[in-house]
Design a binder for these strands. Structure first.
Lengths: 338, 338
DNA sequence: TTGTATGCGTTATCAA
DNA sequence: TTGATAACGCATACAA
């Protein structure tokens, strides 16, 4: 296991160089010698060290990937797609969970750079991630942003058309008959939140309804954030008939708060959000969502990254936008009571 | 970005060695020299290469992790927990999806070894994974098995008490009134399937019911496998009143087939399975499941691995078994019709 | 067809 | 307190 080329060479009675040739499938080795070397390799369980070869070639075959949380059903497929695409190109994935923590993200980035990953695929925490990434982008280090853009950072990216997605979702709610629709979203610092807010607003204005600032509830976009925000929604003077949650975890938190308050969806309150959870929809098709093709987006992003690593990309930053699709289920219906 | 110690040394007017000392926080460098070096490091955006230092220290700070599929809601939290624990110990995670493919698994294992990961945390494909892992276990390379054991491989492991879990789940179905319970599971080659079958059988015999081989349907434990198996269940001469699916994806497939056949759960047929999907349960608490503490199991497994890497483990293989818990929801009720 | 020398970027060792 | 040298494991360039 800890055998080196030299050990193999000694056992086979040749030089280290000849062993190296056999390993890399280079020509110029007699069949007989090759056989002896292969026997020695098997005998010693020799596995060539990528650490050493990386040092020479300046290529580690490693790609860094940072997401807020792999266990989030949106990011699971994202990571899966990226890994599959990377593997097919001969790369391995170093996976990091930033926990939406800017400092942790920075730590990961510098660590990954030290490990000499050849590129970085990242769903950044937010606009502030620019602090963590700016210098590398400036230094032409291969980076692709996924899911979220970073204001002021000109960089390859793959995102959803969040504005139109949110517009479609809210337009649907309006079509169903909702007039007061709360939007539970994150701080202005995250591009997805900003864009979805723009779409929300557009749908409302398209319908000739008044845009009401008070119906936008800013929070953290995790379960607890959704929970808290929903409580605020319920406490509002004039209660909305529907809640639009900016993403899946937020919707879960909203649901939790509603249930606790004995409010049934959609009989008492409608609910819709971004991100579908595929298999779960089979078990219980309940939530109306705007579905993002997470795995495809991630594969596309990895493809961009591979091109940049391979040098076939050109200097210009490339922007890929996916459409996504509205999936109407029961949760968005107009309340029967109230 | 591609600056080396020497570049820094030159800029600071010192030797490479002194730079190295500063980077590693070693003593014996005057405050003034240290400052000059730190300035040079910042100036050049210097990031020390772990590739080079790994070569010397023989430690990469890398841990390999192989799971069938991160996007599976059971493995997402598994990977998340492992990564968190690894990070806190200063390790990074190389993530691989075996796709339950033995050849792919082997390829990953050898690749990871070449990358000189210091240990391997793996949810193996099945007993045949012994081919892929046996030599490394024999060579005392740090490996911990997670979720699944491998017959004949004496190795650290963290698993659930599958026998008792399945027993509890099936005992519940019997208590509710079910008498003919189908079990949809995988080939005998996977330890979890074997153990859950044993638990299924035990619950049935404990209740004084006859164990019927024909009620055990072997298939692949993915959605398609569950789908096909459910169709067989429905075609059975004497139709069971409940289906016990060996895991989450299988249950999804079963559900899909039932829905397609216009069979409502639980009005026409009950359903229960292993693995809960936490947040989803909030959205729609429907499926009766036996819940595994995936993230905790994974953290424990990583802990075992870290101990083995650190050499504080002892030669004996350690076996950790988690209990899990039954969560009764509506899907397991006794059918009203039929 | 095979081998020797050299260097990748870093650090351990020993010397100054 | 600082530096010169060698070595980690492999591969490139060149020589034999």
């Amino acid at each position: 296991m800890t055998a080196t080329v030299r050990d193999v060479a000694r056992l086979a009675g040749v030089s280290a160089m000849t062993v190296s040739r056999v390993i890399n499938g280079q020509p110029g080795v007699s069949a007989e010698t090759r056989q002896r070397i292969e026997a020695a390799i098997a005998e010693l369980d020799y596995a060539p060290s990528k650490v050493a070869s990386s040092l020479i070639s300046q290529k580690t075959g490693l790609i860094g990937m940072i997401v807020p949380d792999v266990s989030n059903p949106f990011f699971g497929p994202i990571v899966r797609g990226a890994e599959t695409t990377a593997r097919r190109a001969g790369f391995k994935l170093l996976l990091c969970n930033s926990e939406s923590d800017l400092r942790l993200e920075r730590e990961y980035v510098t660590d990954l750079i030290s490990h000499r990953v050849e590129g970085l695929l990242i769903a950044p925490v937010g606009d502030s991630s620019r602090q963590n990434l700016g210098r590398y982008v400036a230094g032409n280090f291969p980076i692709v942003l996924l899911d979220r853009l970073i204001a002021g950072l000109d960089c390859d990216s793959v995102t959803l058309d969040n504005i139109d997605g949110a517009r479609q979702l809210v337009a649907h709610l309006i079509a169903v008959g909702h007039r007061r629709i709360a939007f539970v979203t994150d701080a202005d610092e995250v591009s997805t939140g900003r864009q979805r807010l723009a779409g929300y607003r557009k749908a409302i204005e398209d319908a000739g309804l008044p845009f009401d600032e008070d119906l936008v509830f800013h929070t953290t976009t995790d379960q607890m954030g959704g929970y808290r925000a929903a409580q605020q929604v319920l406490a509002a003077a004039e209660r909305p008939s529907a809640i639009f949650a900016v993403n899946n975890m937020t919707a879960v938190g909203v649901m939790q708060a509603l249930r606790q308050a004995n409010i049934t969806v959609p009989d008492d309150m409608a609910l819709a959000c971004f991100d579908d959870v595929q298999h779960l929809a089979v078990i219980s098709p309940f939530l109306t969502v705007f579905d993002q093709p997470a795995e495809d987006m991630s594969k596309a992003a990895m493809q961009l990254l591979l091109e940049r690593i391979g040098g076939t990309a050109g200097k210009q930053a490339r922007t890929v936008t996916f459409p996504g699709k509205l999936i109407v289920r029961v949760s968005s219906a107009l309340p029967k009571r109230g």
